[in-house]
Nucleic acid binder design. Structure first.
Ligand code: FES
Ligand code: FES
Lengths: 131, 131
DNA sequence: ATTAAATGCTATAGACATGTATCATTTATG
DNA sequence: CATAAATGATACATGTCTATAGCATTTAAT
């Protein structure tokens, strides 16, 4: 499993932005705050804009703001932009199919974990993070 | 986190071999049984030999056998050959450092999980897998 | 002896995720 | 209007993990 950088960056960005919902933040500003490589950050911001989580303003004082209430954005929603929660539906030891007929030795503990994680991801909104 | 292919293959190979501890198995045979790409499998087998988990016999009827009792090989030992258990010591959401002062929202559930997983990996030996 | 079939060794190729660069367009400011 | 500073869009570079290839060496079988 494990989430891609793009997903991590998306989470960082939106989490950080949710601190000040109504403030317009530029890519440059976010770059300084979050230490994400500037050109990569730009890409991710564009992507988040396309996916309608945030909206952009162009021009000299341009930047990004939320385009929907942060209560309505769950961490799962953000992960679904790129990796998707399905990326958790794999054998943690990396077997596509167990060499035995039964499940691998990590299956039980991993299955429980996965369920807990998905639950948390679905139930946690950006608004919750700042509480 | 998540384990590399090399680690998965190592686990598959040794798990499979542990079914018949005293049988000499060739790379070709294992390739047919485990569907691991032959040249990659060769690499991994060489590596496992260097690390003394198995020993090789060269020549026409050559192959690989365990060089230590399978009761003494834990899954953690195998993972330590390549990725190491330390690969689990990361933020599951991919933050190197939380953008907030506090831990990320997945921290608690992930920490518990990680502990459980490490426990299982350390306590499970190859011998246990065939019970 | 010769051949076939195995491992030892190591260099090279490919695929994919990550990161960079460039130019066009928009808009506030003076 | 001219400039500066922002986003839009997209192509390119880099790095890393995964996979392949090739030749040398060893040994059993004929
Ligand atoms: S078979 Fe490995 S986690 Fe389910
Ligand atoms: S800070 Fe994310 S798992 Fe600990």
């Amino acid at each position: 499993m494990n989430f891609s950088k793009t997903t991590s960056y998306s989470l960082s960005i939106l989490s950080y932005m949710s601190i000040n919902e109504d403030t317009n933040m530029s890519a440059k500003y976010l770059h300084n705050k979050l230490s994400i490589p500037y050109p990569y950050l730009r890409q991710v911001l564009t992507n988040l804009t396309h996916k309608r989580f945030i909206k952009s303003t162009r021009g000299r004082t341009g930047g990004f703001t939320f385009s929907m209430p942060k209560e309505k954005i769950s961490l799962a929603d953000i992960i679904d932009i790129t990796d998707g929660l399905e990326s958790l539906n794999i054998c943690i030891l990396g077997f596509n199919k167990c060499p035995f007929d039964k499940q691998c030795s990590m299956h039980e503990v991993w299955e429980k974990t996965r369920d807990s994680m998905i639950k948390v991801l679905k139930e946690t909104s950006l608004a919750d993070l700042t509480k």
